[in-house]
Write a protein that binds this DNA or RNA. Sequence first.
DNA 1: CAAAGTTGTCAAAGCGCTTTGGAATGCGCA
DNA 2: TGCGCATTCCAAAGCGCTTTGACAACTTTG
Lengths: 341, 341
Amino acid sequence: MNLKELSHLLGLSQTTVSRALNGYPEVSEATRARVVAAAQKHSYSPNTRAQGLATGLSRCIGHVISVNDSGEMVNPIFGDFMAGAGETYAAHGYDMMVTRVGQADEADIYRNLKARGAVDGLVVHAPRKNDPRLPLLTEIGLPFVVHGRSTGATVDYSWLDVNNRRAFRDAAAYLTSLGHRRIALINGQEELDFAIRRREGFEAALAEAGIAVDPALMARGEMTEDYGHACAARMLDAQDPPTAFLAASIICASGVRRALDERGLRPGADVSIATFDDCLSYFGNGSTVPVFTAMQSSVRAAGATLAQMLLDRIDDPTGPHQQTLWEAEFVIGASTDKVKD
Amino acid sequence: MNLKELSHLLGLSQTTVSRALNGYPEVSEATRARVVAAAQKHSYSPNTRAQGLATGLSRCIGHVISVNDSGEMVNPIFGDFMAGAGETYAAHGYDMMVTRVGQADEADIYRNLKARGAVDGLVVHAPRKNDPRLPLLTEIGLPFVVHGRSTGATVDYSWLDVNNRRAFRDAAAYLTSLGHRRIALINGQEELDFAIRRREGFEAALAEAGIAVDPALMARGEMTEDYGHACAARMLDAQDPPTAFLAASIICASGVRRALDERGLRPGADVSIATFDDCLSYFGNGSTVPVFTAMQSSVRAAGATLAQMLLDRIDDPTGPHQQTLWEAEFVIGASTDKVKD
DNA sequence: CAAAGTTGTCAAAGCGCTTTGGAATGCGCA
DNA sequence: TGCGCATTCCAAAGCGCTTTGACAACTTTG
């Protein structure tokens, strides 16, 4: 069923039917009602591609997930982010496209997305320091918003970020206030901007407490459960082990916890763990009392909000950039306690 | 840059340029080389929508993720599955579209996807028993493949599934062989077909060992960490607690483990845990020796294979259906041991 | 009652591509 | 020289939609 057939059926022109369906005022309400009913009855929906060709818009948003060439790590927050963003898109009649890309051909992919007119805009995930994507996208004129920020960016851009520096500073300060002085940071990959900020926050808190940073207590890497476990195991088995851990994600933290359990150490009572919590739907932080002391911020909410920011930007590509900083909520759970001596 | 401009630049007709780029034989190699070079230089890529309109194909695959209306659970395997599928799509020049859908308007969404010509085919996730989507998609003529199977389906269809029944039968049998007789099943939602099969396998193994099933030791629900923890906590605190657990996913299992830890019980030595493992990239099952005794099957590989099956099907929509059953690999880890008495 | 404005509708152009059905060109061969 | 046959290229139609500009058919106004 297409426009032509439908308009024939109704004895109207394609113009009128199109206008009736798209809410233009030049068509009488009686006609509109008749058209809408017929469209419903014959389950007519305009062909996406034809509509896009005619309007010059794709009504589609791109999400480029970069897969680093070495590992084949998929970001665990991806699903929840998409669920949040998808809600917003659906409400505005947008589709959502996902493109996988290695880092080698990164620029090509973005250029291609633009050249093909495949998307009207896109969300930049996992921004790095001096991320080359921001100037690139600005140059080729593809509207975008960034989940996070990029230190050293030479262009202005829209972003939504969590105050990672503050969150980690506060969490580390909380641990020092409990008397901990051997605090380990199990950080994400420090190519990523948020990980840099987290480290800075961590170091600031230590400095404030007059504690020297110990490189042996700072790890960086892909935030898997196994990574959390391996780092914690190594540190706990070393001489002068940490009495507290600061983990980059609840999945990491769960690996840290496993390392404690293996050694007969109880989280909280023996060794403290604090973690960042993205509020993943499949990995909550306990239902009643929080399992982990955590800095939490919903990645799903971030997805929904960023999607809205992007749609706004597509509506008005020359308007001012929206820049939003969320504070993580700090909750105290069962995994931290005064240092044991 | 579009075809018209490019052909003007080259002093050729649009036809010739289009044919040159699409590898048609009617154009001389010299001309083709010249055209390809120019396209490269001006970074020309055909407009997706125009191309689609002309060919009648979208070169896009849909993935519909159903979000159940109550909870807002996102399937943790989603990211890894998409990463696998995306690789295949990219290699064949296909895009990947994600649509979020509640269960209420499910049929509408699928119909709409077809009517709009938004996708050339799609992957059905999380099939249920007698899943209405299979006859629906067959009726509206949208090629699809199913990740899993649907008991009671009235139509023939292509699928790839893991032998869940066998996997859970074997794992349960392994536990009984270790002397366990109080074995708990922490299952997924039993609306989902795979969960039904798992339960059947579990029950079969118990029957073979002459053990009566105890409803108090069988849970079903969304496979979150918290769910695994809550079920295990409840069962362990009851009188006559289980001596072994069979968990539906490694995330669930990790919740079960937490319940053990809280109670000072050691996995393996005190209480055994076996689990299904989807080989998620961010939640491996230990790097050297497996943490959990597990039935493992890579969901990422499933994504890649299913994508290929779908592309085959789109190529030849009337051909025979491909139906593939994978056996999970059973690995023995540190989380199981002889029953303690 | 003619002129001017409103309202509801339409024919046709155009979005950027593919593809059909020719049409030139060059070549060998009679 | 002239004919047939590849080879190489092209003009134009068409994919399904939106949108411009025009036009009837009615109202309103002076």
